[in-house]
Nucleic acid binder design. Structure first.
Length: 347
DNA sequence: TACAAGTCAATAAT
DNA sequence: ATTATTGACTTGTA
């Protein structure tokens, strides 16, 4: 399996992600310096809150070989392109959620292997396989639980869904509602964009291929995450001017055109919606912008802040679309994955 | 060359 | 401690 995934990953991922990255990263001084650090090892420093949590959840377990390998895979977002990596196989594993009892413990996986530094880039491919493993492992789940636990704040709304255990099951059902409820989001964006509400988006994604599994599981793979998102933020009023006014052609272009193929992000993203949702999720989990920006988006805090507050309409974006795609992608992932992405990166 | 788009990093503001 | 602003800089395009 890993092989397959890897291959896939390489194929698709490389192409676009690359290009986008290239465009961005290339700043002479700044980028080079900063980038490197992050990638290579700097992470530990920045992790700060999240890291602590993570660690707290589980200390290092040197022994487990298993866990080690897994994470790394997902980790590499920045340099290597990994757009598709995440997708999904992972879902499957999710399903089996173990027994709750396990949760209490704090085992977790260690990430601490020596591996990373040198190789970050190629990690990407491995992801998939890794993810699998992860999921299966009880510990991993447990750790997640801890994570959440740390952030009680918002839990109220989603409490149940969040918890590792429950989500597997519970989420499925609930998800639907959420969706529908959320659906409204749609009104904002209107039709085609994928925004929060967008199920369609999901469908699209699924269709692409990777996520059949998910579907099988729950009916809508989306459901899982939806629970999270769905919660409440819809606060916005009205103004979604941006979203609505996109030109039509853009979307198409994006989709098909891109790169040929591969992963296909054919999506049109409602940037405003994504920005709002990201903002809400970050708050919910108390994830600082700096962490999210660096780990998930490979951008600086200031950049993220600006994007969140002043999202430009998709039609007006050029290379900046990549950043929104990453955010969107993250939103699509199941919670544990999101968390792991955060923590991994920081590892 | 001039401009626009994106981003970073430093700094200000909460 | 985090988030918001902003000036400088790189790259792609007209």
């Amino acid at each position: 399996m890993e092989l397959t995934m890897e291959n896939i990953g390489n194929l698709h991922g490389v192409p676009h992600s690359h290009q986008s990255d290239l465009m961005n990263s290339p700043h002479a001084r700044q980028s080079s310096a900063s980038h490197r650090n992050l990638v290579s090892h700097g992470r530990s420093a920045m992790v700060s809150s999240m890291a602590s949590i993570l660690e707290g959840a589980g200390d290092y377990r040197t022994d487990h070989a298993l866990s080690g390998p897994l994470h790394p895979a997902m980790t590499m977002s920045c340099d290597s392109g990994m757009s598709l990596s995440s997708t999904y196989t992972t879902l499957t594993p999710l399903q089996h959620l173990p027994p709750i009892s396990t949760v209490s413990e704090k085992f977790h996986h260690p990430h601490p292997h020596a591996h990373h530094h040198p190789a970050h880039q190629r990690l990407a491919p491995g992801n998939v396989s890794g993810s699998f493993t992860l999921m299966r492992d009880d510990r991993s789940l447990a750790s997640m639980g801890n994570l959440y636990g740390h952030y009680p704040k918002d839990m109220s709304g989603m409490g149940q869904s969040l918890s590792p255990l429950s989500n597997g099951l519970g989420s499925l059902h609930s998800s639907q509602q959420t969706l529908s409820a959320y659906g409204p989001g749609a009104h904002l964006s209107n039709d085609k964009m994928l925004s929060s509400g967008g199920f369609e988006s999901h469908a699209a994604m699924l269709s692409r291929g990777e996520d059949h599994l998910a579907r099988g599981l729950g009916g809508h793979g989306a459901g899982l995450m939806s629970s999270l998102n769905g919660i409440h933020h819809h606060s916005h009023p009205h103004s979604q001017a941006n979203g609505s006014m996109l030109s039509d052609r853009d979307r198409q272009t994006v989709v098909g055109g891109g790169q040929g193929g591969g992963s296909g992000q054919v999506e049109e993203i409602n940037t405003k919606e994504v920005a709002q949702r990201i903002t809400a999720e970050l708050k919910r989990y108390s994830i600082p912008q700096a962490i999210f920006a660096q780990r998930i988006l490979c951008r600086s805090q200031g950049t993220l802040s600006d994007l969140l507050r002043n999202p430009k309409p998709w039609s007006k974006l050029k290379s900046g679309r990549e950043t929104f795609r990453r955010m969107w992608k993250w939103l699509q992932e199941p919670e544990f994955q999101r968390m792991s992405a955060l923590r991994l990166a920081g590892e």
